[in-house]
């Protein structure tokens, strides 16, 4: 066994030598690919959505070659810090808790309202009922501190399914994610008042990678300045606050 590991390691070391010639750095962007309209996989299986368009434009402005990678939400931060990709662009709100582990660029959305979605006509007890949220989100920590019973799911889609099959009374998620679902299906609707959470969405970057953080922040600021970011927000996240 030991031999095999050493042999594999040796192979890996020598294989890399062939490709080690100088290249312009490619920046790998990690996203979840399951949170429309922010990011999702389109019918062709490619990353699409608000953050796809935004990320491509930011890379153009920062003069970087970028590549898209999808990763499970649960392990999206561990894989960033271990260097499997260079930036997270996955609808991740800027929070103090996350900021201890990674760094954030300037925010590219305003603090976005979160909303509750429940079965149409149901009355929901927001302080004592059973509320679903995606694990590891700001909505999940909000529910946990509100007194309601939190049920967590790995993907956004499963939180909606939990409301439909009665496992949860309502789901708390970004309003931009819930609105298209509420508009298109008769059985569920947005209920209650919006909740403002987090400090807006930003790109997550390794703490040691200040250079990349500066580059993306500068690109985001330039898009804020010329209004192109607002145009994107209006196109993809109708109803969200602009800059």
């Amino acid at each position: 066994m030991k031999k095999l590991i050493i042999a594999t390691a040796a192979l890996a070391v020598s294989a890399g030598a062939v490709f080690a010639e100088g290249h312009a750095k490619t920046v790998r962007l990690g996203t979840e690919g399951a949170y429309p309209p922010y990011n999702f996989l389109n019918d062709a299986g490619e990353v699409d959505g608000f953050e796809r368009v935004l990320g491509d434009e930011l890379c153009k402005r920062a003069e970087l070659t970028c590549e898209w990678v999808t990763n499970d939400w649960d392990s999206i931060i561990p894989n960033l810090v271990s260097g499997n990709y260079d930036a997270i662009i996955a609808g991740m709100s800027i929070t103090a808790e996350r900021d201890e582990v990674i760094d954030f660029t300037s925010n590219y959305t305003q603090p976005d309202p979160s909303a509750y979605l429940a079965l149409d006509g149901a009355s929901v007890d927001f302080e004592g009922g059973v509320i679903a949220a995606q694990a590891g989100t700001i909505q999940a920590s909000h529910i946990a501190s509100s007194g309601a019973t939190l049920v967590e799911f790995a993907t956004p889609d499963e939180t909606i399914a939990a409301v439909r099959n009665g496992e949860a009374d309502a789901v708390l998620a970004d309003k931009a994610y819930l609105s298209p679902i509420a508009e298109e299906s008769a059985d569920v609707a947005i209920v209650g008042e919006d909740v403002l959470l987090g400090g807006g969405i930003g790109m997550g970057i390794r703490e040691s990678d200040t250079e990349l953080k500066e580059k993306f922040s500068a690109a985001i600021d330039s898009m804020k300045a010329d209004g192109s970011l607002n145009a994107l927000i209006e196109e993809w996240l109708p109803g969200s606050a602009t800059f």
């Binding site: 890996a12 890399g16 490709f19 080690a20 290249h23 312009a24 750095k25 490619t26 920046v27 790998r28 070659t65 590549e67 990678v69 810090v81 271990s82 260097g83 260079d86 582990v101 990674i102 390794r206 703490e207 040691s208 990678d209």
Partner: peptide, 24 residues
């Protein structure tokens, strides 16, 4: 090791940051 980050030089990345997605 810089805090939470695992940072090696670009030439040591496996596969290299520049390699196409299929290699990753």
């Amino acid at each position: 090791r810089q805090g939470n980050d695992f940072v090696v030089c670009a030439a040591a990345k496996l596969p290299l940051g520049t390699s196409p997605q299929w290699m990753h």
